[in-house]
Computed example of a mutant assay.
Amino acid sequence: VLNQQRKFIYEQRDEILVDEDLSGRVMNNAKETVSEIFEEFKHERTPSQSALADKIYNTFGQQLSYDQLTEEGVDAALQNDLTQKEMLAGKQSLNMFIRYQYIQMIDKKWLDQLEFLDGLREAVHLRSYGSKNPLTEYKIDGFNQFDEMLDSIRDSVTSRVFKVKVQVGSQPPRQQQPRQMNAQHQEAQSMARSAQQAAQNSAMKSGRQGQSVTVTRSVPKVGRNDPCPCGSGKKYKNCCGRNS
């Protein structure tokens, strides 16, 4: 029993991982659910449109008018909702969202199923006291619970996909951030080059001088308009200071 269920659930899981049209799967499941809802209301003595509208809203999150409350009308409204979601979010993004919902729900429900089967294995032995075959009881209860698990996965994911709302918000221009990053990069490069050049100049200067030297003037400084020290009688700037 466990091996059969495990094989089936993992085959379904693998199919969902490679399915590129999960919205189609969701829509098919939605149609089955809608058909079940209308079949349920057909057997009521006094079917109420208000109750039917509430059922559709609680299941799919779609507020429909009474004119749309036919099986075909509900299917069309749900298909329109999926189409709009694909247009807003993109088919690939919507497909990834649905895939995540399926995988998350499958993994959670399968763990619950394993715990149920483990507890059932212990419980069915007590039924042998009532002249019942424990193995038969285990198979019946195990597969009934498994069928309920599959229905729960299908219904939960379908309902969540239709109830989710796609919102398109304003986004900054795509080139704004790269430009800013490029300017910061250029600034960093410029600072690095400046630091590198300063380091090189300092190293070259240290190499030439070896150590710092203090220069002391032995004679007073001669102004350019002062008499030339050579005794020519001319101003310093017109004599010895001409080339300085």
Rank of each mutant, 00 (worst) to 15 (best):
K163R: 04
K163T: 02
K163N: 01
V164R: 10
K165D: 14
K165S: 11
K165Q: 14
V166F: 04
V166K: 05
Q167H: 10
Q167C: 07
Q167D: 09
Q167S: 13
V168L: 06
V168C: 04
G169A: 13
S170L: 12
S170Y: 14
S170M: 13
S170K: 15
S170I: 08
P172Y: 05
P172W: 06
P172M: 01
Q175D: 14
Q175P: 08
Q176P: 03
Q177A: 12
Q177M: 13
Q177C: 03
P178Y: 00
R179I: 11
R179E: 13
R179A: 12
Q180C: 04
Q180F: 07
Q180G: 06
Q180W: 01
M181T: 06
M181S: 10
N182M: 14
N182C: 12
A183P: 03
Q184K: 08
Q184C: 01
Q184G: 06
H185M: 09
H185Q: 06
H185A: 10
H185N: 08
Q186K: 12
Q186Y: 15
E187Y: 13
A188Q: 13
Q189E: 07
Q189A: 09
Q189N: 09
S190K: 15
S190G: 09
S190Y: 15
S190F: 15
M191H: 15
A192V: 02
A192H: 10
A192Y: 05
A192N: 11
A192P: 04
R193L: 11
R193V: 11
S194Q: 15
S194T: 13
A195P: 06
Q197D: 11
A198H: 05
A198Y: 03
A199V: 06
Q200D: 04
Q200M: 11
Q200C: 04
Q200E: 08
Q200V: 07
N201I: 13
N201R: 10
S202H: 04
S202I: 05
S202E: 07
A203L: 09
K205W: 02
S206P: 03
G207D: 08
Q209G: 05
Q209T: 08
G210V: 01
G210R: 03
G210E: 02
Q211A: 06
Q211M: 05
Q211C: 03
S212H: 07
S212W: 05
S212R: 13
S212T: 10
V213P: 03
T214W: 00
T214H: 07
T214K: 09
T214I: 08
V215R: 03
T216Y: 14
T216E: 13
R217F: 04
R217H: 07
S218I: 13
S218D: 15
S218L: 14
V219A: 07
V219K: 15
P220N: 06
P220S: 03
K221M: 02
V222C: 00
G223F: 02
G223H: 01
G223V: 02
G223W: 00
G223A: 03
N225C: 02
D226H: 02
D226M: 01
P227H: 03
P227Q: 02
P227F: 02
